[in-house]
Amino acid sequence: MSELVEAAVAASDLAQRRSGVAIRELSQETEFRAACDLLDRVWRPPAGSPLITMALLRGFEHSGSYVVGAYESDRLLGVCIGFLAKAGLHSHIAGVEARARGRTIGFALKVHQRAWSLERAITKVTWTYDPLVSRNAYFNLAKLGAVAQEYLPDFYGEMDDGVNKGQGSDRMLVGWDLTASAVAEGCLPPHHGAALPPDAVAGLDADANGLPVLGPLDAPCLTIRIPADIEALRAERPGAAQAWRSALRDTLGGLLAEGAAVTGFTRDGRYLVERKAEG
């Protein structure tokens, strides 16, 4: 076993101990059904429309994809599912029981996924997340060291689960280079958000009413702000949440389409974006 793999396995073991869980691959029908039920409790899809089926999990597992659960004794508290893809592994979905949040179980699942992948000579993992959810942006970009690759407007079409209904399904595709030193360091605490460059210009900010305000987008270094809690905003002010979706799609989506790069995410909820130098 190479030093890289050994270090990844050790980091995974440490993350599991700190979270108080044991992560293992699922292989039995009862385990698959429990995983499906957990994901449905997290996302709350309409009755009769499960988020994912037992049969699909069986197919993923049997084909050698990533299907794991995080257990406290015999209680399933978290699930993470990924399938083999052209890039290596695509991490499709992960969820943690509401009562178990705040215990870094999601982090333990990702660190385990890294070790599992490296043990199989997979060096890159991709996944998508809602770019308006600040805690996920921070987790993915600042904590794990993933890199934003592409802004995908309305990627999944209209969604009717309790988390996404009525808000569109824009997603950010990220790539996780499992061999990068920054990623290896991110798998161990502490973690810090990106520092704000002194020459950064606000390309998207919030006004006194919490609504998006567009700024100039032609500066070399830009900040793109998102709400601190878009989920609460969706529940309390859905019109404002929709305004943020449109503004982020136009600014961040437009910048990435033009070749700009996301270089970090700050603790106070701003993407750092840099334009490529011409010439």
Rank of each mutant, 00 (worst) to 15 (best):
R267Y: 00
R101L: 05
F60L: 14
A22V: 15
M54R: 15
L248W: 00
L233F: 03
R237V: 04
D161T: 11
T223P: 11
D40A: 08
I226W: 00
F83N: 10
G215E: 05
E61Y: 01
A100E: 05
L233H: 05
G48T: 10
A195P: 15
R44C: 10
A47G: 10
A194R: 11
T126A: 06
A261I: 07
A194G: 08
D229L: 05
Y71C: 11
V5H: 06
L26F: 02
D205M: 09
A243Q: 15
R135H: 11
L132I: 12
T263V: 15
R275Q: 13
W43E: 05
D177G: 11
Q149C: 12
A195Q: 15
I122Y: 01
P220E: 04
R171P: 11
N140M: 08
A142W: 01
E258L: 13
T179I: 06
S117Y: 01
A87C: 05
R275Y: 04
R114P: 11
E278A: 15
G254T: 07
H90L: 03
V79T: 06
L204G: 08
L211D: 09
R114W: 03
H90Y: 14
G48N: 08
P198E: 07
K143Y: 00
A241Q: 10
V68W: 01
F155A: 12
A277F: 00
S134Y: 00
